[in-house]
């Protein structure tokens, strides 16, 4: 079943008076199946973040359509968009985006509280997730008291607690050391194995090599795709590296 469909997305940024126009996305189309684990790779300026923001409904495309389980998110009204985001999407960011004034527990509750859920319900949901992520014993602590890896696990817990249809991760390993990165990526594998659809945007070859499919973005277009199929992670790592060097040296378009 197709969960997310991105059709002919175009995004043009223009200055306030319409002077300079910058085309961030020229024409992007792809679709994500239920339970998939997709990584989007590309250099700085390739339009990754713009694409993610559009899928996250934080930004609107200049033209084109994004459909999440049959519903176009481009046309959702301003009033409903926050609720839509809250109910359907989970976010994991590079710099964690945890709130310093909330304890780890309250940070995880945040989207549920905004959705107006009762405390009992929230309390019921949190335990299985934190056990899986191994952060049960730091729930009472504050973000400035825990390590980077723990912060990112907290952010993952916050993304998962709403049982979102799609988890969007923007450079989740960007601020972590290699040990914490490995832990987090293993975690993503587990979550995905349990049926969660994940869309990951990254620079890191290692992070991308965990995904089942990799999209390469260049100059605002999908330049190339790789499927993992039955290959091992090491093989994928090699393939991704090769592709990236082809892109970097300016290979022909064969998407």
């Amino acid at each position: 079943m197709t969960l997310l469909e991105v059709k002919n997305i175009k995004k043009i940024y223009s200055t306030r008076f319409g002077g300079n126009k910058v085309q961030a996305l020229t024409n992007v189309s792809f679709s994500v199946e239920q339970g998939e684990y997709i990584a989007i790779m590309g250099e700085s300026g390739s339009g990754k973040t713009t694409l993610l923001n559009i899928i996250a409904s934080l930004d609107k495309p200049s033209s084109g359509e994004v459909v999440l389980s049959g519903k176009s998110i481009v046309t959702i009204s301003e009033q409903q968009i926050s609720a839509f985001r809250r109910d359907n999407l989970g976010f994991v960011f590079q710099d964690f985006n945890l709130l310093d004034n909330f304890s780890v527990e309250d940070n995880i509750y945040l989207p549920l509280v905004l959705a107006g859920k009762s405390y009992d319900e929230m309390n019921e949901r949190i335990l299985p997730i934190t056990q899986q992520l191994g952060i049960t014993d730091i729930l009472a602590k504050f973000p400035y008291e825990v390590s980077g890896g723990q912060k990112q696990r907290t952010a993952v817990a916050r993304a998962l607690i709403t049982k979102p249809q799609l988890v969007l991760a923007d450079e989740p390993t960007g601020a972590l050391d290699s040990h914490a990165s490995d832990g987090l990526l293993r975690l993503f594998d587990e979550i995905n194995a349990a049926g969660q659809t994940i869309l990951l945007v990254t620079h890191s070859v290692k992070a991308a090599s965990h995904a089942k499919r990799i999209l390469f973005l260049r100059d605002g277009e999908v330049f190339h795709q790789l499927y993992r199929a039955s290959q091992t992670q090491e093989q994928m790592y090699q393939k991704i590296s090769d592709t990236l060097s082809v892109i970097a040296t300016g290979g022909e378009h064969h998407g």
Binding site: D87, L110, L114
Partner: peptide, 15 residues
């Protein structure tokens, strides 16, 4: 920044 984060995880403008 706090508000940006909260808006990302689903706090609406009205809220």
């Amino acid at each position: 920044q706090r508000f940006e984060i909260m808006q990302k995880v689903g706090m609406s403008r009205g809220e």
